[in-house]
């Protein structure tokens, strides 16, 4: 376990990666920019655990908040609507 790379309020961008196998970053959010809402803690990587590997070192998990209107260009609703998604650090870059 190491230090969390991002802090609440940091702007981050989700990697637009194509991954084969088990993953926890939904496709709809890849490539989008959001703001770190909180650090959820450090967890063994579920993408490794799924294959009976130890998933270590533990990874920082963040809750990242995205503006709905940016995620869905045709979003029906006011500007303040958001979606929070839990994303592991190895899926995030500084925006």
């Amino acid at each position: 376990m190491s230090q969390a790379r991002f802090q609440p309020g940091d702007r981050v961008k989700v990697r637009n990666a194509e991954v084969v196998g088990h993953m926890r970053t939904p496709r709809y959010i890849r490539g989008h920019e959001g703001e770190v809402e909180r650090i959820c803690g450090f967890f063994a990587n579920p993408e490794e655990l799924a294959y009976n590997r130890h998933g270590l070192p533990k990874r920082a998990l963040y809750r990242v908040r995205f503006d709905q209107k940016k995620v869905w260009p045709d979003y029906q609703g006011p500007a303040g609507d958001t979606v929070d998604v839990e994303i592991y650090e190895h899926w995030l870059d500084k925006a």
């Binding site: 926890r24 970053t25 939904p26 959010i29 959820c40 803690g41 967890f43 579920p46 998990l61 809750r63 709905q68 609703g77 006011p78 303040g80 609507d81 958001t82 979606v83 929070d84 998604v85 839990e86 994303i87 592991y88």
Partner: peptide, 15 residues
């Protein structure tokens, strides 16, 4: 109503 923000939580990992 539109003056209340809708905040969706996608429970994708350990929360």
């Amino acid at each position: 109503p539109d003056d209340i923000a809708v905040r969706v939580h996608d429970s994708t990992a350990d929360m």
